[in-house]
Design a protein around this nucleic acid. Structure first.
Lengths: 234, 234
DNA sequence: TCAAAAGTGTTCGAATTACACCCATGG
DNA sequence: CCATGGGTGTAATTCGAACACTTTTGA
């Protein structure tokens, strides 16, 4: 049984994948392997299959192209401009993903002609992918101002200066390190480890780890790490 | 030219329409006119046509069923569970809308078997529409905690007690009226009128009006009207 | 005259900001 | 021994929460 007289349309799923290399926020892009616009850079995407729902499609696409499972993945929004794909009318549901860049294996990058690009230096993208990236950046700022999601971008063990740098990149500003670490530690979400990371200073910075339990429980809590958040939202 | 070997799918657009009658938050629902589940209550929706984009489809649907144009309409999210529509696989893009209930003409309600339901007393809905409504409620709380969108639910002229009541309904709590009006007026978004509304008290409450210019400019501003917002978000 | 809602100010405590110095270490 | 980044404490201020009384007027 079917609905009569209605038009069926291609549905695509595209993923905006963020990473952080310790210096900059990065975006994972692939070089398109088919026409039109072969070799142009593009978000990772694919068509929705008849036997999968939207979240499954996003996970599949992410897995096919990065080999990663169980990563942070959240629906962003849908795009349906008539001419957004020159080949054929396609409605696109986008997801944004935060991944630990170090878990991402290099060989996959190679085999799919994928590459990380600094968020501030994105190449020309196909279709309306730039608009998608911009929406994702806005949502990332929103969400990260209220929820501790940026931990998803870091390795298991990280230092406070690393984390501060990450926030500074996301909000494109500088924070006072004393206030930052005080607020951060006051959340009780972090556990200090014995080790130090000596890669970025002679003194070394202590590693911390997320308290997974509290992280899950407090996910809905405000993290008021960002002073004057209204400066940065939308 | 078309993409080969891909499945095309029905795309629907459903609208979650909020109103406020001065007492309660309401939801506009229609009685479905066709099988399956004829006469069951449903969100207003329709299928995406080949010549319209998503926003246009949502506006059209809203217009067809309420006669209203230029109302607050924002994409919520998309739903794609395999079995969400028993007739045929359908991906649904939802929008939520805030309308001034008094602008909504009664005759249209009648002709479409539509009706307003208190948000706290929603009838059984078809498919996954309850899930959609819940997502919309969450998003409404989020958005209204950061942006002055609830004015969209009120008439041109409104009183501060009315507005406070609206916020109290949205967040299902009570606010201190002294703090509320102080914060509200400090935004500079409101202009006091000479008239009073005497319908709800003997003393009467002054009408206010939005300063449209400032409203547009300050749309991105926090309205910290809600104490402890983290209690209410998500 | 009284009941019922509108309107207004102050005080207190907490939270946020601004700010400067010592520490540890590798070179 | 010194340059570099890591780490900590305090004072001043702002901001938000709590709280109670007066006003108006229709019934």
């Amino acid at each position: 049984m079917q609905y009569q007289g209605q038009t069926r349309i291609l549905v695509a799923v595209d993923c905006i994948i963020f990473g952080f290399d310790g210096e900059e926020i990065k975006l994972l892009l692939i070089q398109r392997g088919f026409e039109p616009r072969v070799r142009d850079w593009s978000l990772m995407g694919g068509f929705l299959k008849p036997d999968e729902n939207l979240d499954e499609a996003a996970s599949r696409i992410l897995y096919e192209l990065t080999g990663l499972k169980e990563v942070y993945l959240e629906q962003l929004m849908s795009f349906g401009q008539l001419d957004r794909d020159p080949v054929e009318r396609t409605v696109c549901v986008t997801y944004f993903s935060l991944i630990n860049i170090h878990k991402y294996e290099k060989q996959i990058t190679d085999s799919f002609h994928a590459d990380w690009f600094s968020i501030n230096n994105i190449p020309r993208l196909i279709f309306d992918h730039v608009k998608m990236v911009n929406e994702a950046k806005i949502k990332l700022r929103y969400k990260a101002a209220l929820h501790p999601i940026l931990f998803e971008l870091l390795p298991e063990k990280f230092t406070i200066p690393q984390l501060q740098n990450l926030y500074q990149q996301v909000y494109d500003t500088e924070f006072d390190n004393r206030n930052f670490s005080r607020k951060l530690l006051s959340t009780g979400l972090l556990m200090k480890l014995g080790e130090k990371d000596k890669s970025s200073s002679k003194k070394g910075a202590f590693y911390y780890q997320l308290d997974k339990e509290k992280y899950k429980q407090n996910f809905q809590a405000f993290l008021n790490l960002i002073p004057n958040p209204d400066k940065f939202l939308l």
